[in-house]
Design a protein around this nucleic acid. Structure first.
Lengths: 372, 372
DNA sequence: GCAACAGGCACAATCGATTGTGTAAAGTAA
DNA sequence: TTACTTTACACAATCGATTGTGCCTGTTGC
């Protein structure tokens, strides 16, 4: 039986044209080619034109490896994230890639899989790839930060985002989680809630700690009592939240509002409330955190806090580029906190109509269904 | 006011140690170092030990740029995707990165933003970065495939995934969409549906064309009539689907089952059916496609087809690595079609209990809630 | 005892672009 | 005309690792 297919060509492999080829063709030196292409002042306009035209003709593409080797810096940025899944990280990466490519950089992406050892290895790889800068979101298991000193030691720009090393001598971009917790809780209060439970996440993670703090801030501001019995700690899983709310509802004074530090927890709470025959938001208002896709399609849609994923990516790149431009010169580390956006939906705004406005709190942005 | 912070160090920039440094320290040539590190046979075991030890001591990291420049191939794979968002592409990229890094490769990722011009530019960039191979999922606007010839011309391994160039002279990995459509429809028939509508997507996209074909296959197999009036074409948006079902339900002979070519369409259909007071699945069974996150949390959860995103990434990398290993030698192009997985949930299986089994069709895998 | 041989290592060219320095020719000022 | 700039380009070293070739030493074979 004859082979079904023709085989890939391997004889007509076009080797890419190099500056040497152009130089030979024009009878000039490689110096001239290089400088003409980079618009160096010591090359005459006539020669520049000739070189440019020839480069077009042969579709010359500079070898980035050679260039980077010589200059000691590539046009690559390294990203280290715990993983590329869910809603958050992909969106941030999307923002990063978009901003980076706009600035002429490309990104090489690594996953730590929530493992410090892998994170360390990734850093080494990025270093050996001579990236121009590194963006990191810490793995959950990272407690020791010495591996980042090596990066610093090389004078390589380093920016943390979302899961950051705390302190003011690092460059970091985060969401203002405390503000997010505050906005949510304040909104619940404005909706008339007086006994607001908080489904809190693991407190060793700064994000959950901050969301809780924002919750407390809002209570205090409104003169409401802080009641630890209204705060339930869990890993933010849907069923844990349901179970938690179940217990709270069984008490003598059940809550009339729930601020969940995560959308899955909010979902669990919503489902549990409905199982108990409660109306949401009339009997109990529920808000979440993260603006997961599903929050728009539940009945009712869930009020939540958007994390500005794309902006976070953009801001991180901006900061990194500033660092790269500083090029080793003194640079005062910056910590950027992005303002979260409260998205008011019907799980809290019982007076909001479906058209997209909240009657009670017109200052807040109301968001209904989202296009696929 | 004094600056609040100490500035980043710029004097103690540790320049990475090179092979030359090691050679100097040991009083041998760079050749020896290089060959010792790569375990070349012409280096004695004693010397190898000395070199290895010194390399450890100085934490030597080879400069990948230099290596790649010399060898003409880097340890980088290029990915070009339309965008990094939603559920599908991030998951595939996750699979790709995982498989690639396991094989010692890193990935540089580019977004085409559904724009051919950008796609072309991305290819050029990857070429100039001297990647070892390229993985592409086509932009929606790509009709002309000449820019891929340049990649081929260089003899660079190229694999398409999901959105592929059709034909049997390319390397490609896709989901067997036709099988997915077939499985879904067959399942609906097994559930007792006799008048099954199909919410179809744009037919110039092979995925939607194939899903529709699978639907037709199942109908034919079961001896059910093909009724074009039961097939509604749209862009798969939630509201379009709702509107479409609305019309179908108003006819004299409304459908008792709906196979939507996308989950958002299925969701729209589900909501519309419920608005009309119909019970799902008792009055009308509904199934979707893609296994979007939200399909597990609707009431009832939606039966759907999982696209094996991760496996697609892994399979693509495997194919690409095979091509790289072939190293220009004749290679018969391969087209891989992954078997989709039908996830039966309560939107179709009215006889299924919540515990996770389908009474009617025990051969099918029933999937309930999914952990966050 | 001499040749053929293998082991172990160094020399030097190479990948492709960049850049400090050198040097003609052309232009300007006095 | 002399001296001094500018303009426009070439030379050659360099980034760091790789690799074909060559050389020397010690070993084996007969």
């Amino acid at each position: 039986m004859a082979p079904r297919k023709k085989q890939v060509a391997d004889v007509n492999n076009t080797s890419p044209v190099s500056m040497a080829d152009l130089a030979r063709e024009l009878g000039v030196s490689m110096t001239t080619i290089s400088r003409a292409l980079s618009d160096h002042h010591s090359i005459g306009p006539a020669m520049k034109q000739k070189v440019l035209k020839l480069a077009k003709k042969y579709n010359y593409q500079p070898n980035r490896l050679a260039s980077a080797l010589r200059k000691g810096k590539s046009q690559l940025l390294g990203i280290v994230v715990p993983y590329i899944e869910g809603r958050f990280f992909p969106s941030v990466v999307h923002g990063i890639e978009t901003a980076a490519s706009k600035a002429g950089y490309n990104v090489i992406i690594c996953q730590s899989n929530e493992d410090v050892a892998q994170e360390r290895r990734n850093l080494d790889i990025l270093l050996s790839a001579q990236v121009a800068g590194i963006l990191v979101s810490l793995s959950r298991t990272t407690r020791d930060f010495r591996h980042f000193e090596k990066v610093r030691g090389r004078g390589l720009p380093l920016v943390f985002f979302d899961r950051v090393v705390e302190g003011d001598n690092v460059n970091a971009v985060v969401l203002d989680d405390q503000e997010g917790g505050y906005l949510s809780t304040r909104h619940l209060i404005a909706q008339g809630c007086r006994r607001i439970a908080h489904l809190a996440g693991p407190q060793h993670l700064n994000i959950y700690r901050n969301r809780r703090q924002g919750y407390l801030d809002a209570l205090r501001e409104a003169g409401l009592p802080e009641d630890e019995s209204l705060i339930l700690y869990s890993d933010m899983a849907q069923d844990q939240a349901a179970e938690g709310l179940h217990q709270l509802l069984a008490t003598a004074r059940p809550p009339d509002g729930v601020f969940a530090a995560g959308d899955y927890a909010a979902l669990g709470a919503l489902q549990e409330a409905q199982r108990q025959g409660l109306r949401v938001p009339e009997d109990v208002a529920i808000s979440g955190f993260s603006n997961e896709t599903f929050t728009t399609i539940t009945q009712p849609p869930i009020t939540t806090v958007d994390q500005r994923c794309e902006e976070m990516g953009q801001a991180s790149v901006r900061l990194l580029l500033d660092l790269i431009e500083a090029d080793g010169r003194p640079f005062t580390p910056r910590q950027v906190a992005l303002r979260p956006e409260l998205l008011v939906r019907q799980s809290t705004a019982y007076s909001a109509d479906t058209q997209g406005r909240s009657v009670r709190d017109p200052a807040l942005k109301f968001v209904g269904d989202v296009a696929p």
